Amino acid sequence: MAKVDIKTEITGNVWKIEKAVGEQVGEEDVILILESMKMEIPVSAPEDGVIIEILVAEGDTVTEGTVVARIEA
């Protein structure tokens, strides 16, 4: 089993966390939603796995490349 970091592709605020630690996710499942410039940007799982860490909270500000979650694939 490999740990996979899930990173943001844009600077923004964590608007809503959709998944919880321990949940099974499929490739492209939305883990959280960022808000940037009044747009909602989904952050998705790059592959199938189980969420082992969520490193941000709703309302946090993140920059491009921030690791927001980890899955075990």
Score class of each variant (00 low, 15 high):
25 V>I: 04
39 M>T: 12
22 G>Q: 03
26 G>M: 02
65 G>I: 03
33 I>Y: 04
43 V>D: 00
32 L>N: 04
51 I>Y: 08
47 E>M: 14
54 I>C: 08
47 E>Y: 07
38 K>Y: 12
41 I>V: 15
29 D>R: 10
54 I>A: 02
68 V>C: 05
63 T>Q: 13
24 Q>A: 00
39 M>E: 09
39 M>R: 04
40 E>C: 13
37 M>D: 15
25 V>G: 08
28 E>Q: 12
35 E>R: 04
52 I>G: 07
64 E>F: 00
36 S>N: 10
23 E>Q: 12
57 A>L: 09
27 E>K: 15
50 V>L: 04
62 V>D: 11
53 E>V: 04
33 I>F: 13
32 L>T: 01
39 M>L: 14
49 G>M: 05
58 E>C: 13
29 D>K: 03
26 G>F: 00
62 V>N: 08
21 V>T: 08
29 D>C: 07
61 T>L: 10
43 V>Q: 09
60 D>S: 05
36 S>A: 15
60 D>Q: 10
23 E>A: 08
37 M>W: 10
26 G>V: 03
60 D>I: 00
40 E>P: 06
26 G>A: 09
53 E>L: 01
45 A>Q: 00
44 S>N: 09
44 S>A: 13
23 E>D: 13
58 E>P: 12
69 A>S: 13
22 G>Y: 05
44 S>F: 10
55 L>A: 14
51 I>E: 10
52 I>V: 15
29 D>Y: 03
32 L>A: 08
48 D>Q: 15
30 V>T: 15
52 I>F: 02
66 T>H: 03
56 V>L: 05
55 L>H: 13
41 I>G: 05
27 E>I: 00
28 E>V: 03
68 V>Y: 09
32 L>R: 05
44 S>G: 00
29 D>W: 03
62 V>R: 11
27 E>Y: 06
33 I>M: 05
45 A>R: 11
55 L>D: 11
36 S>V: 14
67 V>F: 04
66 T>G: 01
63 T>P: 02
28 E>H: 12
57 A>G: 12
47 E>A: 11
63 T>L: 01
38 K>E: 00
60 D>T: 00
47 E>P: 02
34 L>N: 08
47 E>V: 10
40 E>I: 04
65 G>D: 05
39 M>F: 05
63 T>E: 14
31 I>T: 06
38 K>P: 12
32 L>S: 05
28 E>G: 01
68 V>S: 06
26 G>L: 09
25 V>N: 12
61 T>I: 02
29 D>V: 02
31 I>Q: 00
53 E>T: 14
44 S>P: 07
